[in-house]
Design a protein around this nucleic acid. Structure first.
Length: 280
RNA sequence: GCCGAGGUAGCCAAGGUGGUCACGGCGGAGGUCUGAAAAACCCCAGAUGUCAGUUCGACUCUGACCCUCGGCA
């Protein structure tokens, strides 16, 4: 098995294709945006025949847990057919769960989430403190102020009463053997990354990025839908809504890509199993 | 050239009868991360156009100069 991850715009797919040829492999996507149907140009679905593209519609909920279930089956099936699974993507959150498992088996409680989403951070903190003060005190400053994390914590506590629902077994730790290729791609310097991202944004605009956003809006998808909260789409929607100019939208798009690339590496570098390859 | 407005961090920008050298936002650095993750959140650095003057003390007052933006010419 081969895993290729890393920063955005590093040519992960290209490398994956090389390996696919070499090892009789099939690609499995772990990019949280390419999971969505109709998000094609801006998310860069350049290659046909990749597993786990176009799984759900842009307005549908999809979690890392859903991803892991699908990926497990897909990978098992590839192996059964005697081929090499090649995982490609940049969503380390998904990959982490696939490789190292989950802590809690609590499923989402959407009614509870809706209710809690109306609360302020202060209120959420108060609620959680009341339920589990010890756990709250143990949270770091970043999480304590993060409504999503607080809501999730409250959600977990609230389902504890009924008991955990699903299992949280790890999938692949046994596969982390020496012949297990786990590669991370990143840029040595930011100027190069910026240059590549600029080129890529321009290319996507030429390919019809704006038309893609328009057609999504025409289909009835909204800015607030999970799939639409994606770099590129967000900025172009603001442009189409007349909130910013086209030039501003493009600049913001590029900036968001750079910030994303940075966050990706910050997260991924904690995984000591990744073999980093520098791009210069 | 004249009249008006203004010059506060890389950008936008608040402020005060002169008194711990200054609110924010963006951008930048670093970070958090276990069922929303291309999300959400934490945190750090950085500034009063120039030169004089008044004053115990000026970013705040005065003058000159430089620059920017409007209008007149």
């Amino acid at each position: 098995m081969i895993i290729i991850t890393g920063q955005t715009a590093t040519g992960k797919t290209g490398l994956a294709l090389k390996y696919a040829k070499k090892y009789n492999g099939e690609l499995v996507n772990f990019d949280s945006r390419q999971i969505y149907k109709y998000l094609d140009i801006i998310t860069g679905k350049d290659i046909p025949s990749v597993w786990l593209y176009d799984v759900v519609k842009p307005d549908e909920y999809f979690s890392s847990f859903d991803y892991v279930k699908l990926a497990q089956n897909t990978i098992k099936d590839i192996i059964k057919r005697g081929k090499t699974p090649i995982l490609v993507g940049g969503t380390y959150f998904y990959l982490k769960h696939l490789l190292y498992g989950f802590d809690s088996g609590a499923p989402p409680n959407f009614k509870l989430r809706d209710r809690l989403n109306k609360k302020t951070v202060k209120e959420l903190q108060t609620i959680y403190k009341k339920i589990n003060l010890k756990s709250f005190d143990a949270m770091n400053n970043s999480d304590k102020n993060n409504p999503r994390r607080l809501i999730r914590k409250i959600e977990i506590e609230s389902t504890k009463k009924t008991g955990p629902v699903s299992d949280s077994r790890k999938i692949f730790p046994a596969s982390l053997t020496p012949d297990f290729l786990y590669i991370g791609l990143r840029y040595k310097n930011k100027n190069k990354l910026l240059k590549i991202i600029k080129i890529r944004v321009e290319k996507r605009l030429r390919q019809g990025a704006i038309e893609e956003v328009k057609s999504l809006l025409k289909k009835g998808y909204k800015k607030t839908d999970p799939g639409m909260k994606t770099i590129g789409y967000k900025q172009l929607i603001d442009y189409l809504d007349g909130k910013i100019t086209k030039v501003e939208a493009i600049e913001k798009w590029i900036t968001a890509e750079m910030q994303y690339a940075k966050r990706q590496y910050t997260f991924m570098k904690k995984d000591k199993n990744i073999n980093w390859r520098l791009i210069s």
